[in-house]
Each structure stands twice: as C-alpha cells, then as structure tokens.
Simulated assay, not measured.
Amino acid sequence: MTSNSESKELVITREFKAPRDLVFKAWSEAEHLKHWWGPKGFEITVKGLDFRPNGFFHYSMQSPDGGQMWGKFVYREIQPNEKIVWLNCFSDEEGNIVRAPFSDLIPLEIHNEVTFSETNSITTITLRSRPNNATKEEQSFFEGMFESMEQGFGGTFDQLEQYLEERRS
C-alpha cells in the first residue's frame, strides 16, 4: 500500500491479486461488503444497499466490545469496473447524518473516489478522500488524521485482500 498525504486529500493506493471485476463487485454488492468493509475486528450489518447514482449503502458497525455505530454512503457516480464516487458519513439507524460519536471535528461528509485498474490479473485501487462542505477547523482536523486513516484503511484493505483470497480459492 502506498499513500500520499501531502495534499489536502488523503490518497491511498493498494494492489490486489484478483481480477478487477471481482474487486469491483466486492465494493458494490452487499453480500461482499459485509465481509470486509469497516474497521478491523468490527462486525458489519448491512441495513440497505441501493448501488446506483443517488443510491446508498447503510450499515452498522459493531465493535468487539459491543459498541455500535452507523454509517452511510450516498453514491454520486458509478462507472462499472472503473470508478465509484460517494459521500461517506456517520448516521443514525434511520440513515440521517449525525456527527461522529468520538469527535465533533470530523467533517459531516467525506467525499471519496475509488478507481480500479488491472494489469496481469492484479487490480490496483486508488482511494481519494477529502471533506465535503467542511469548516476550516474540520478540514484541519481531517488533515491531522491522515496517519490514523491510513492505518484504518490499511486494516480494512487487509480484510478485503483476505476476503478476495477466500473468494478465489
């Protein structure tokens, strides 16, 4: 995994030994997402997935100690096997946007874009994340979290890698 946090957005690149169509499905189907999305060690429950522009992915995350948080994607752009653009936020059980339970300075919405490319059955994804409609304080806080987010996405992408390996066997 490589990352570039020099800019105002978080950029993470990761390679997977899997065909692009399988990696894209892992990002776009509830049956796949529930097995790898989210922080390492958390159990994901999918409440709903409507994978289309202006559709959503609504899910809960349960920590090993029993704590529960809700999250939501609102899809903006989808190019099959090429790109997914979405806004990510914390939510309540009904899907309403809420502040992160652990900080009032995390932006309400994060704009994410993941691109997919394949060479010799190796799929490379590049994730770009930045705050959406954030205050200066939220932007600054977000930038200060790059190292933590790189570690978090590293764990999430480790789970994706393991899941893809299981799917290929």
Rank of each mutant, 00 (worst) to 15 (best):
T2Y: 07
E6N: 14
K8D: 07
E9I: 07
E9V: 11
L10C: 05
A18T: 06
R20Q: 12
R20A: 10
D21Q: 15
D21M: 14
E29Y: 08
H32F: 08
W37A: 00
G38F: 07
K40W: 05
F42I: 05
I44L: 11
V46D: 06
V46R: 09
V46E: 02
L49C: 10
L49S: 05
S63W: 04
G66I: 11
G67K: 07
G67C: 02
K72G: 05
F73C: 12
Y75L: 04
I78N: 01
I78V: 13
Q79W: 09
Q79E: 13
P80Q: 12
E82M: 15
I84Y: 06
W86S: 09
L87D: 06
L87T: 09
S91N: 00
S91M: 03
D92V: 12
E94V: 10
N96Q: 06
N96G: 09
I97S: 07
I97T: 14
R99D: 08
P101N: 02
P101I: 03
P101K: 05
S103Q: 01
D104H: 03
I110A: 02
N112V: 05
S117A: 15
N120Y: 11
N120K: 15
N120R: 11
N120S: 14
S121G: 12
I122A: 09
I125A: 02
T126N: 04
R128P: 03
S129F: 05
R130S: 10
P131E: 00
P131H: 00
T135S: 10
E137L: 12
S140C: 06
F141N: 07
E147I: 13
M149I: 12
E150I: 15
G152N: 04
F153V: 00
G155A: 05
G155Y: 09
T156N: 01
Q162V: 15
E165Q: 12
E166K: 14
S169A: 13
S169V: 14
